[in-house]
């Protein structure tokens, strides 16, 4: 099973990693500012990319600005390397940067992600690049940018707490399952991008550098390594993450985020790891889930041995 692909040949018609050097310098300056002020949204001169807005152009610009020829890139969408847009972005960088790509979380120096943080802990020296559709955690509460910038400047987050409180009053719990707002370094309320709140605990005290790029909204923000990140909650309603009643049907993991796979039209379903590489590694290490041997299990794993 080949997981890493050696450096392919770079398309010489474009500058290394597509963006011109001046643009990369502009993005890097924004990144430096973002790292210096954790959780603060830095406006940047987002460029038009050959991929559509909303399809990861912010993350792509960040990756293009930090990647070097010796880097190894992993791209995931929904936790998996095989989702179509992850494949498309990986192909883009293989073409314009000629870098090695991998599916192994541990082997990657840069991981670009949409909607997930890998299950395996990241290490120092790795960079996790998030694709962010809406960088402003307050946008749904206040549509005007001019206002939300003021709210951040004043640290005026009462509106957000009221929203969370209203959820509790209405549903008995906070009814936000993804893009769950966090307080970074005790100062800025930040959107973690639409990762499930299950992943929120991994944001804080992370060994890796976390960079967030919102292309359409033209904002960059960051969480430097070992930064405190707190999911907003109340003393009597502490933050909690999703749980499942059963472990992964393929690898038996009870500690991972699970996707639901509908297996027939009679309502049968199975739950499998959303992080495809994590699941695969566990199976390689001999862990066997309940349905690994089943027809669907075999189809999902490409006929992996039980």
């Amino acid at each position: 099973m080949q997981k890493s692909v050696g450096p392919p040949k770079r398309d010489e018609a474009y500058n290394f990693a597509y963006l011109d050097e001046q643009t990369k310098r502009m993005v890097r300056r924004a990144l430096l500012k973002a790292v210096a002020v954790p959780g603060y949204q830095v406006p940047f001169g987002s460029r038009e990319m050959p991929l559509a807005r909303g399809w990861g152009t912010g993350g792509i610009q960040v990756t293009a600005s930090v990647i070097g020829p010796d880097d190894t890139l992993k791209v995931i969408d929904q936790g998996a390397d095989d989702t179509t847009n992850a494949v498309s972005i990986r192909r883009f960088f293989a073409r314009v940067a000629g870098v090695a790509t991998t599916e192994a979380t541990g082997e990657a120096s840069i991981i670009q992600t949409r909607h997930r943080i890998p299950e395996a802990p990241l290490r120092a020296g790795q960079i996790l690049v998030y694709q962010v559709p809406q960088p402003e955690p307050l946008r749904k509460l206040e549509p005007k940018e001019a206002e939300t910038r003021k709210m951040h400047a004043w640290g005026d987050y009462g509106l957000m707490h009221v929203r969370l409180y209203e959820d509790i009053a209405r549903f008995g719990r906070v009814a936000t399952t993804y893009s769950y707002p966090v307080l970074v370094n005790g100062r800025y309320v930040m959107s973690p991008s639409p990762i499930p709140k299950f992943d929120n605990p991994k944001l804080g005290m992370c060994a890796a550098l976390q960079l967030f790029g919102a292309g359409r909204e033209k904002r960059i923000y960051a969480i430097p390594p070992w930064t405190e990140v707190k999911s907003l909650d109340f003393d009597d309603h502490p933050f909690e993450v999703q749980t499942w009643d059963e472990p992964c049907a393929l690898c038996g993991a009870a500690d991972s985020y699970l996707d639901e796979v509908i297996t027939d039209d009679k309502g049968s379903r199975m739950f499998v790891c959303s992080d495809s590489h994590y699941c695969e590694e566990r199976r390689a290490a001999g862990h066997v889930g309940r349905l690994l041997g089943s027809e669907t299990g075999q189809k999902l794993t490409g006929g992996a041995k039980e």
Partner: peptide, 20 residues
């Protein structure tokens, strides 16, 4: 171009969030 990109990005998988 921005609007079309963002509206059409709804075609991308969202099953992680949907699962939540």
């Amino acid at each position: 171009v921005e609007a079309a990109g963002f509206v059409e990005h709804l075609k991308l998988p969202h099953y992680v969030d949907f699962q939540g």
